[in-house]
Amino acid sequence: MKRSLSLLAKLLKIQVRSQLQYPTSFILEVLSSLLIQGFFFVAFGLTLIRFDQIGGWNLGEVAFVWGITEFSFGIMDMFFSGFDYDSFGPMVRRGGFDQLLLRPVNITLQVLGSRFVLRRLGRIAEGLVILIFSIIQIHASLSIVKVLYIPVLVISQVLFFSSLFIIGATTTFWTMDRLEILNVFTYGGGEVMSYPMHIFPRSIRLIFTFIVPAIFLSYYPAVYILNKPNPLGSPAFFAFLAPFISAFMFLLALRFWRFGVKNYQSTGS
């Protein structure tokens, strides 16, 4: 375990160093991703001026779910890029995964350490700025418990999104290619979690409750933290299921991953 962690640290450190080799281009990439991602929120905010509110939430309140989702997704995307099925699928197909199997180290650790994308700092910063903007707006409704719950939510969302990445990566063992449809759950999940989710039709909400339980990671906790009425009429304790559901999902995803690795077979050529 200790050796694994120190190896992981080395893998990450060397990648960070190589990505910082051209600091100007690195800074530009971080800034551009910050500005471009940030623009969407600004655009949404400017649009909201014409309407005042969406689903009964004002900009500061939407900014809470928007910011926390962007922040968590960015963190996940930085650390779990190795499992990004967009690149993992092609890697399996080209035999890159075989190369990892030929090394005497735990395979999960190797995949985790295979890709660390530091430029995601842009998106992380963007999410953080929006979250801080939100907290400035909504601080009146915050209590100590609520403030403490925010980091728990971030961790839960990171686990949640990484589970989706891991599951996505595992499916590519069979498909041998990226499956764009998974984007509905990962990036689509991020999208629906960035709004007060009661605005979506029942069918979409059901998908993001029972197939991918995104609603427990964003909407229910936000209703509690922001003191908003809940038009869905669900029990109050739903607000606190986030850490349990995400931990459960993460374990499930890891099991599926191990199952995939165990049954993985290279191609014949």
Binding site: I54, Y195, I199, P201
Partner: peptide
């Protein structure tokens, strides 16, 4: 869905 919620 978002547009519908905005327009009311």
């Amino acid at each position: 869905s978002v547009l519908i919620a905005l327009y009311r």
